[in-house]
Design a protein around this nucleic acid. Structure first.
Lengths: 133, 133
DNA sequence: TTCAACCCTGCCGCCAGCGGCAAGGTCAAG
DNA sequence: CTTGACCTTGCCGCTGGCGGCAGGGTTGAA
């Protein structure tokens, strides 16, 4: 083993992938997209600091909610709280609010659509078929 | 002009695209995906019957809400109401309810995420920046 | 020394929902 | 008879978020 963790949190990509439930490939992708950063060891290996895991989990959480990497980039500085990253700039915050508004619209649209679909289904199904609940 | 409409609603692809606010390309795509159907004139041109416009608008509506073409295929039979298409089969209805449940989950996830983001933003912004509303 | 298990950087592939273009047929008007 | 607006099929391209592989270095253990 290459050092289970000399200093806590100084971890390489495979480990980070494992603990965050993702893949090294995805992590490199996030880095290239500017969502995470890494130092390099003398051999060129990426080394992640403590807190990276939190950040990555935040990323995954937002992605899972249907946000794009661009969106995530906007919101991340507001989520890390403690870790580095630019303290959310004024402009950054404005943009974040804008994206949030967009998100709200999307949710509204989907909700409306769902309601209509549900109504249509109830009507078609008479009473034969019921919501899975 | 090739006949502004001999019988009302017997219309070709460009017209249908125009009235539904989409493109011929997209309509062919929907057809290939099995979402709409068309007869052919003797010259090979697609001819759409009345009601196609409604169907297409339904499709666009659902797509705009973030559904996939697959999803749409599932829900369409329940929306046409009058037009042809298979009368929503029993199995079809079950599947539709399932998809609806998925949609609900997605909405829930997004809503939760939005709430968290909003909270984070409020905290970061103190009171400097306010929701766009 | 050799091996396995890591890591690196490309670069191509996939899915979805089309856009866009080529190469050709059809039709009505001038 | 030509023009131009329409239509046809087919295929390649693009965006996003990676997956996966090739080709190569580094490490620690046996």
């Amino acid at each position: 083993m290459i050092g289970v963790a000399q200093e806590v949190g100084r971890v390489q990509i495979g480990e980070l992938a494992k603990v965050t439930g993702t893949t090294a490939r995805a992590l490199r992708h996030y880095e290239q997209a500017g969502l995470i950063s890494s130092e390099r060891a003398s051999n060129g290996y990426r080394v992640y600091e403590e807190g990276a895991a939190v950040r990555v989990r935040n990323i995954r959480y937002l992605l899972a909610a249907g946000l794009t990497l661009d969106d995530v980039r906007v919101f991340l500085p507001c989520l890390d709280g403690d870790v580095a990253a630019a303290p959310p700039s004024d402009k950054g915050l404005r943009v974040a609010w804008e994206r949030l508004a967009v998100l709200n619209e999307r949710i509204a649209a989907q909700t409306e659509t769902r309601d209509r679909l549900e109504a249509a289904l109830r009507q078609k199904a008479g009473g034969l078929i019921r919501p899975a609940a």
